[in-house]
């Protein structure tokens, strides 16, 4: 079982590590890089707790052999906040009580980020579709959907002023 060296860009930083054949992106993040926000709820692609962004698109990290994504860009929950400043999704999940046990939160937030990055003005149906691969056993989903919509609204409001600041 010869191991290989794999390089990934994780949360903006190049990361190099040694990996055994067939190691999943999820195991690589958790075991090799100690990025444990992404969870292993099923290892079958059916629970969504391992959702991360691969080149900006949400994927189940448990279904990706890490060798097949060498050199590509990965975003995990650990990279979401800018220092101490939380991402609007994180703020809204706190404010609207969208977490209970917290085990699905990482995957939920990353699936939602994948949506908002591409569609800043989602409908409720868009949000439902975006998180339809993520299981939550505690909340009944309603607070999570509300939190994603709340974050989208906040980001939309903030966007013009951000543009102005950039000018």
């Amino acid at each position: 079982m010869p191991s290989t060296i794999v390089t990934l860009k994780v949360n903006g930083r190049a990361q190099e590590f040694l990996t055994r054949p067939g190691t999943t992106l999820l195991d690589a993040l958790r075991d090799s890089l100690s990025l444990t926000a992404s969870k292993k709820g099923c290892a079958q692609g059916t629970c969504g707790t391992c959702t991360v962004l691969l080149d900006g698109k949400p994927v189940f990290a448990c279904l990706v052999p890490v060798e097949t994504v060498a050199g590509r860009s990965i975003e995990t929950l650990e990279g979401l906040a800018a220092g101490d400043v939380l991402h609007p999704l994180q703020e809204s999940f706190i404010a609207l009580f969208a977490t209970q046990c917290g085990f699905c939160s990482s995957g939920m937030i990353m699936a939602a980020k994948g949506l908002l990055d591409r569609n800043p003005d989602p409908s409720r149906a868009d949000v439902v579709r975006a998180i339809s691969g993520n299981v939550c056993r505690c909340t009944g989903y309603e607070a999570i959907i509300d939190a994603v919509l709340d974050a989208a609204a906040k980001m939309k409001k903030a966007a013009p002023s951000r543009r102005k600041a950039a000018e």
Binding site: G45, V64, T68
Partner: peptide, 27 residues
Amino acid sequence: VIGGGTLVMPKVQAGISGLGALVSLSR
């Protein structure tokens, strides 16, 4: 052969017997 991984990886992680190698179509 492994394409997107949604068929093969669940089997790999459930411990399919007799599987020694994967050939990825990703590149």
